[in-house]
């Protein structure tokens, strides 16, 4: 009885989370110019629009540039931060860790306003580096969390063993610590890219017309002229995110036997 209730409740929660996403997807294949049901007939014209219309095509390219840049930057910074925080050898390591994770909880609007003022001062407002930096701030916590978890899974005795076998500290890092942390670094990078991909609020503040990302373009397209291109773009984002999530899950699976 309880088991049945659990299943029903679980299904309802899943439906609540997924139905809105499912509802939008079929509209990507509509032949009509309106984003409404019922669908008169199916076509791929909105996907065509997505890759041919300049605003959409540019926004996809922008998303890849910004996402790639933010991923690279945040992965490097986040990994270094996680390494530095490891083992709480630093004074105030706990406080520092909290600071690194702050972008996860600070309201995006606040971060956006702050970022805009800051980037204008630096002369980076409405530039690619500016947007990449702003996104990277948001992505760093994911990398820090993921790499820290991977580092925590490394048995300190393994590194000691390497030392006793004649490896100087830099070699221990290169041959033992880093290879064992790689799954965490990669899954952190995947999260970072996914975060950058669907980031809208901060992009609104710091990006100029030339750095319009896909998510940002969808946002304005809904406000200005609701066309089914939005649904097509949504489908693209969801498929992309699912692929990334699958990649992360795969890495996690491979990570386990390595730690055991």
């Amino acid at each position: 009885m309880l088991r049945a209730l659990q299943i029903v409740f679980g299904s309802l929660v899943v439906a609540f989370l997924i139905l809105p996403i499912i509802a939008i997807l079929p509209l990507a294949f509509t032949s009509s110019v309106f984003l409404t049901y019922p669908i008169p007939s199916y076509s791929l014209r909105w996907f065509e629009e997505l890759v041919t219309a300049d605003v959409w095509r540019l926004s996809i390219i922008n998303s890849l540039i910004v996402g790639g840049g933010a991923t690279l930057l945040s992965t490097v910074l986040g990994t270094l931060a996680a390494l530095g925080l490891r083992g709480n050898a630093l004074p105030l390591a706990g406080l520092l860790r909290t600071l690194f994770l702050l972008p996860m909880v600070v309201p995006a609007v606040v971060l956006g306003v702050g970022m805009q003022i800051f980037l204008v001062r630096l002369g980076l407002a409405s530039t690619y580096p500016g947007v990449i930096i702003a996104h990277a701030v948001l992505c760093v916590p994911f990398v820090v969390v993921s790499v820290s978890a991977a580092l925590q899974g490394i048995d300190p005795a393994v590194e000691k063993a390497a030392m006793s076998l004649g490896a100087p500290p830099i070699t221990v890092f290169r041959r033992v610590t880093l290879p064992l942390a790689v799954p965490g670094v990669v899954s952190g990078a995947v999260f970072a890219f996914a975060t950058s991909l669907d980031e809208v609020v901060i992009t609104l503040f710091v990006a100029g017309p030339n750095q319009r990302t896909l998510a940002r373009q969808m946002f304005s397209s809904i406000r200005e002229n609701i066309s089914p291109t939005v649904a097509a773009a949504a489908l693209l984002l969801i498929v992309g995110t699912l692929c990334l999530a699958a990649l992360a899950a795969l890495l996690r699976r491979r990570e386990k036997p390595a730690v055991a």
Partner: peptide
């Protein structure tokens, strides 16, 4: 040469 309690082999 150190031999550790839980062997400390390089898992990778």
């Amino acid at each position: 040469g150190v031999v550790f309690q839980n062997y400390a082999l390089f898992p990778h």
